[in-house]
Nucleic acid binder design. Structure first.
Lengths: 348, 348
DNA sequence: GGCTAGCACTCTCATCTTATGAGTGCTAAT
DNA sequence: ATTAGCACTCATAAGATGAGAGTGCTAGCC
């Protein structure tokens, strides 16, 4: 498996033991305790030699000369990719989670919020749910409401049941009944198309229309373009941020401050979660693999969720690099499936 | 002025000096520095006597026997109510704030978010904006969209330009064109009424209708009732939580954890902000005056904001009890006016 | 009576020292 | 290859000490 190809079975065993021990204790682990707890028939001295090798290869680090070893981000990477036992959740655990997840009927947004709470509660870390910019979503319907003067309220409904509304300011006053006509016209044009498609379509039509003189269509295209131009930026629901403070590695206030600031700066978070989304599979980002500087002491486990066969967004857990990957990964995986199921039901 | 009636002018001067000093230094303040810095023509010993009196009256406290004095919550209360100089913002400051507040066109929600950011940035504390349960808001329009099966998407627009959407599940399938008829009917009934009024009206009509046999009206009333039954719970936008960590008094991780947990538990926050709202004026809640235990080390300054003559919500700042009230209070006051102005413009 | 100087006393905080113990790296023996 | 033994390193915790800030009280002064 790539990076760990050069390791002997014994080295792999030791590395696994060290990482597991460190994950549960948060203390640098010494040769003695590895030899003792993990039933190797080897003396501490031998373990020390192995550890020195692993350190040289970059999988382990020592905080200072006379301390035990601590996994590096690379070490965790190897652990997650090829050392860890990937035990799926038991039936009992799954049904426990299902019970905990009270599917709110009502707004889809509540479902997201609930999911982030669920994730943070179960992982005792931070739960995140990304509802990405909805480029890929299919439009079900668009409506306009005249507010006042040139202001028009645009309401956009996707097939997945999400609702986006925004206000646009026009150059001219268009009365409500004309807005209705425009909406009807646009709906026939765009229904079922993805947002990105719609945008393309409108531009194309607009170009064709230059020559023509159908006032209604002209207005419709213009309004449509304004409506769909909106940022449509991803939104991210974050839950359980306070859990981060339980981790001993973040006793330092300064470090914590920067992490919390990063959580508030959602746009960065959106960007990275967006990247995870493109993987269309469970993704782990460990420590310094993260491009966001402030989050380089944290790890991220994400999985995509779907509405029917539409890829909708990502959800996951942010926790210390020293997180229990073997527990969190199946948890995130299952939660994504759970959310997908609910969303699919709603849309059906 | 009530609580401070018994104080001599000199005692008031000393108390003011101590509080101001403590606010800017975060250190217990001693008799010596009061005498020196504040140009009293009194010796430290005399100041000490006065301080002892003030302590006895409950305005000051000492962390330990040989430390300086620290204001109590009661002390801050007197300070805010009758000691503090209530200097309003200068023109320059006001225009600076106005420049900083980029009024986002688009969704009203963004305006709230932006306002909480503005508040937190300027106060270097936590900014909060409450959009309360919209009972008092007037309905502009209601619309229904058929989603799938018995599921119907309800969209509710208020005169202030806020949009609420929720999904209701009916007992029967109603096709879109009938939904449209129902919407038209309901709109004539409810337009311009406040939500609480609408609810009353629907119940009343429903009772009258028992006898009658207009199927459409019956359906409309039922759907209307379901639509307006939703929790409509207040929502709160919180910005700048990380700022709390800068305060020396929250170096203790455990204390901070509970504060952050309280921020996430928004429902409590909503409740207290709702109370502030009923004051219809600038409100200060100092330390232990707060009913939320976790926030009893913090103070809250709030002011209501309006949309036209409609009271819409509250916004404000949460910071350490040791906050610069004389700066924060005018700031909150002005921001509320600023937000009101924007909202009023949008609605006009 | 109100004010102040002086002084003993208290308590925190920073600094230093010391001891402890976990853990390493290396060498030499098996 | 593995291990026992040993010298060495370094963080951490526990006293010890001293400085400094501040108080409360008493006695004297205007």
């Amino acid at each position: 498996m790539g990076t760990s190809a050069g390791l002997t079975e014994r080295e792999r065993d030791v590395l696994r033991a060290i990482i597991q021990d460190y994950i549960s204790s948060a203390e640098p682990v010494g040769s003695r305790s590895v030899a003792r707890k993990y039933g190797f028939r080897l003396s501490p001295a031998t373990i020390r030699n192995i550890m020195a090798d692993l350190a040289e290869l970059g999988y382990l680090d020592q905080p200072h000369t006379s301390a035990g070893r601590v996994p590096t981000d690379l070490g965790y990477r190897v652990y997650v990719d090829s050392l860890m036992s990937r035990r799926p959740l038991t039936r009992a655990e799954e049904s426990m989670i299902e019970r905990k997840f009270r599917p709110p009927q009502g707004e889809v947004e509540d479902l997201m919020r609930e999911a982030s709470k669920l994730l943070s509660g179960l992982s005792r870390s931070v739960g995140v749910v990304l509802v990405p910019r909805v480029d890929q979503l299919a439009v079900k319907r668009i409506e306009f409401f005249h507010l006042a003067g040139e202001r028009v309220l645009v309401i956009l409904i996707t097939t997945s049941g999400q609702v986006h509304h925004s206000m646009v300011i026009l150059d001219e006053v268009i009365p409500q009944d004309e807005l209705n006509k425009i909406a009807r016209l646009l709906n026939t044009l765009v229904e079922g198309l993805s947002l990105s498609r719609v945008r393309q379509l409108l531009v194309k039509k607009m170009a064709e229309e230059k020559a023509m003189y159908d006032e209604l269509l002209r207005r419709a295209l213009k309004l449509g373009q304004k409506s769909f131009a909106g940022d449509m930026e991803g939104e991210v629901y974050i839950g359980g941020t306070a859990n981060i403070m339980d981790q001993p590695e973040f006793a330092d206030v300064e470090k914590m401050r920067s992490i919390f600031a990063a959580f508030e700066e959602t746009s960065k978070l959106v960007k990275i979660l967006d990247q995870c989304l493109t993987q269309e599979a469970l993704t782990t980002i460990i420590g310094s693999e993260n491009v966001i500087r402030e989050l380089q002491d944290l790890s991220l486990v994400t999985a995509p969720y779907w509405c029917g066969e539409h890829l909708l967004g990502t959800l996951g857990v942010i926790g210390p690099t020293r997180m229990e990957y073997s527990r969190i990964i199946p948890l995130v995986d299952f939660t994504a499936k759970l959310v997908s199921r609910h969303l699919t039901e709603v849309a059906s």
